[in-house]
């Protein structure tokens, strides 16, 4: 193993153990590691964004490729900095308005198509057919149950969020089913989150006991 790699591994182990030490309680070692993480992350992102955006795209694009349209973006970006000067800070609202408008327009189409139309289509499927245009009774029993759960869960979940009518009687019962569906969804999400966090811990422990201490085959 090269010396630079060895130093890197020892440094990684020092920082990992420092961060994990927070489980015991707040301490100077943890604070040092946290400060290093925050500082190095900020520095890394600053340099990455500077070289990838301002230099590679803007500077090279204008000076070498002759793409003068980029100057429009450059000027808007510069105007954004005006908020640092309180007297003319209002100018920064112009580029902000442009960004908000452009992003809203872009997202409106994307979300409406991908998250509304396709999802509605996938929710209301033929009950006994495998799909649209397939022969009737071609779906398996499990598939039929799945479709009922998806359509029923979506409907009851939407009923729960309908607040113009009091949640009483049959409407209230449907809303109650809706809240159960929502809770189950949150439970599944929580389970996946636990799995993800455990995976991160496993990764770090693999580094400590494998790469650093060499105790794992």
């Amino acid at each position: 193993m090269e010396m630079s790699e060895l130093i890197g591994i020892w440094l990684g182990a020092f920082l990992t153990l420092g961060i994990i030490s927070f489980l015991y309680g707040d301490n100077p070692w943890y604070k040092l590691c946290e400060a290093i993480f925050v500082g190095s992350s900020a520095g890394y992102w600053f340099i990455t964004l500077f070289w990838d955006n301002i230099y590679s795209k803007f500077y090279v694009g204008v000076t070498q490729d002759g793409n003068y349209m980029l100057l429009v973006g450059g000027v808007l970006g510069f105007l954004m900095l005006m908020r640092l000067i309180s007297k003319i800070g209002w100018i920064s609202r112009w580029p902000l308005a442009f960004v908000v408008g452009a992003i809203a327009g872009f997202y409106l189409i994307n979300y409406f198509s991908s998250n509304v139309m396709y999802q509605v289509n996938a929710t209301i499927m033929p009950l006994f057919g495998s799909g649209y245009g397939d022969p009737i009774f071609s779906a398996s029993f499990g598939n039929v149950i799945n479709k009922i759960i998806i359509a029923g869960g979506t409907f009851t979940g939407l009923v729960y969020f309908f607040f113009s009518k009091e949640h009483k009687g049959a409407f209230g019962a449907t809303a109650k089913v809706g809240i159960w569906v929502i809770m189950l969804t949150f439970g599944a999400s929580f389970g996946y989150t636990v799995m993800s966090r455990m995976s991160l811990l496993i990764g770090r422990m693999d580094f400590i006991f494998g790469d650093w201490l060499g105790l794992i085959k």
Partner: peptide, 8 residues
Amino acid sequence: GNTAVQAP
């Protein structure tokens, strides 16, 4: 391929 947090 997603992290478990993102999968749902």
